[in-house]
């Protein structure tokens, strides 16, 4: 039965070569540390899914934001879970991305030929932090409001354009409805678009160039300072 369906689609879509290229390729023998990247990816999917679900009830205005978040948390079935997953997922994403980066540094995996993968990874880390910062304001509770007040004020210390940056981030002198909507817009449109772009390149390179093999301790012994090329 499954074979038949498989064949039916194969004849119409021709996806088997793609599946073969993606899934049935060989990769070097890896350790458990190599699952950190895919775990980050899974949490990202979790963030996207739960984030989309949250927008179904969330309203980005100072009048409604808090009430709608409270409504999601306390009255919608599984609302606490969806919000909880999004909330804790944010922390998990930072932790996993951080560990993933440490793994990459330990393995020297940013070296040739994976420099671009490393750059996009750093971009992804920055985007993740920006997600955390913009998302923090959205529930419009005390913590959100005051932490963002302090957080945006940091921009003011930049020489010359500091005050302008502050007004740009807040959409005015003070934290207001304008700040909320622009953070919201950033959080659900601008940053996801950037994320998609970067993750696309990152994943493409992981498949195209392949993941790095765990370095062997023997490399130092084999190679003298003359760096002879092995036959």
């Amino acid at each position: 039965m499954i074979e038949k369906i498989d064949l039916w689609f194969e004849e119409r879509m021709g996806w088997r070569p793609i599946w073969k290229a993606l899934a049935l390729r060989n990769i070097p023998k890896v350790t458990w540390a190599y699952t950190l990247g895919s775990a980050t990816l899974l949490v990202m999917v979790n963030q996207i899914l739960t984030g989309i679900l949250l927008t179904i009830y969330y309203v980005p205005s100072p009048q409604d934001a808090y009430n709608s978040v409270s409504f999601i948390t306390n009255e919608i079935t599984a609302g606490w879970l969806i919000r909880g997953l999004h909330h804790w997922g944010a922390s998990a994403m930072v932790i996993l991305a951080g560990l993933h980066m440490i793994r990459v540094v330990v393995h020297g995996a940013y070296k040739f030929p994976r420099e671009v993968t490393w750059f996009t990874g750093l971009g992804l880390l920055a985007v993740t932090m920006a997600f955390g910062f913009t998302g923090y304001l959205l529930p419009w509770d005390q913590k959100a409001y005051w932490a963002t007040t302090v957080g945006t004020r940091m921009l003011e210390v930049v020489p010359v354009i500091g005050p302008w940056l502050l007004r740009f981030a807040r959409g005015g002198e003070e934290l207001s409805a304008v700040t909320l909507t622009r953070f919201y817009g950033m959080h659900i449109w601008v940053l996801p678009a950037l994320l998609m772009l970067l993750i696309g390149i990152h994943m493409f390179l992981v498949v195209r160039i392949g993941i790095s093999a765990p370095p062997k301790a023997s490399e130092t012994e084999e190679e003298g300072p003359e760096l002879e090329v092995e036959a």
Partner: peptide, 18 residues
């Protein structure tokens, strides 16, 4: 994984209809 995420999703979406 699909079930863990899918079941709450459906419950979440259906909730106000009750």
């Amino acid at each position: 994984i699909g079930a863990l995420m899918g079941i709450p999703t459906v419950a979440y979406l259906v909730s106000p209809a009750k």
